[in-house]
Design a protein around this nucleic acid. Sequence first.
DNA 1: CAGGAATAGTTGAACGTTCAATACCGTTCA
DNA 2: TGAACGGTATTGAACGTTCAACTATTCCTG
Lengths: 165, 165
Amino acid sequence: MAQPRWLDDEEQRVWRTFLTATQLLFERLDRALVRDGGMPHAYYEILVRLSEAPDRTLRMSQLAQRCLSSRSRLSHAAARLEERGWIRRQACPTDRRGLLAVLTDDGFAALAAAAPGHVEAVRTYLFDPLTAAQVRALGRISEAVLVGLGEDEAVPLGDDAPGGR
Amino acid sequence: MAQPRWLDDEEQRVWRTFLTATQLLFERLDRALVRDGGMPHAYYEILVRLSEAPDRTLRMSQLAQRCLSSRSRLSHAAARLEERGWIRRQACPTDRRGLLAVLTDDGFAALAAAAPGHVEAVRTYLFDPLTAAQVRALGRISEAVLVGLGEDEAVPLGDDAPGGR
DNA sequence: CAGGAATAGTTGAACGTTCAATACCGTTCA
DNA sequence: TGAACGGTATTGAACGTTCAACTATTCCTG
């Protein structure tokens, strides 16, 4: 990148404000979730995705994709969630390489206990400060960014780099 | 939170899209920075803040605040940056409790080497996909969220909770 | 169907963050 | 002055993520 296209003053200001706002927002939400729900957001995400799946069950790979998580991260997290008794891993009948992650009743209960507070926090810190028009704009902006990220080839999220045999 | 104000369909959609877009965006930017600049975004932030300070020098506390970092995190990060020779810590002349973090020439060079690629990535993945109106909207949205976060009392960012002696 | 390539998932080490504790210094006030 | 309190910064342990193997299974191709 010999001649980068630098940011002009307004872009610089928008970028810094955006960075600050999102960092503080996620920090605030995560902290509230740990305090009131007893879990970090990464765990919450896993429970949510499983709760939405048929039979509250997903292949580990599918789950990782939906959580925007690397396989490795999910493996470690799943081990800890299993210790807590919130999920269970069992052999996949159709593919002997595979594992099915299943949300247990305890896991569902933990999610049900955490969800109201988390939703309330998202509303308080994200939606309440915005007008309806800004909410719509944020939706379109996020979609545009997402499209921009996708165009550049679908990077499969860390992990699984060169390795193999 | 007995009766949470749940998210309606549009809010749900906006929240998930926003979450996905920001997570992927920051992941992409961080990965590029590690690959091309040899440092994670947290280090980059530290170097930037120091480079903007008078004499490229800041008190550790000031630096932590500007980086939205806890003191503890900054301490650990500073130790590693010092090992790399990118910063130096020296006693503060006016307050013997304090330390001054100083950006070294090597640190400045590392920042100068990393910055163009990072800026280019920010442009590519955030600004290029957006219209000028969307960029302005994102600025106002971020400001509104920031105000909303501030109103609720200024939480000093983790660390230094009950402890003491 | 044999053999290589790709897929699914895990593991341990290294790295980064958080949390609570600790040491030290400054400030205040009786 | 000195005792209590608050601020500055660090430290080590615990936790979470990343990175690079590694195992086991399935898919693909000749």
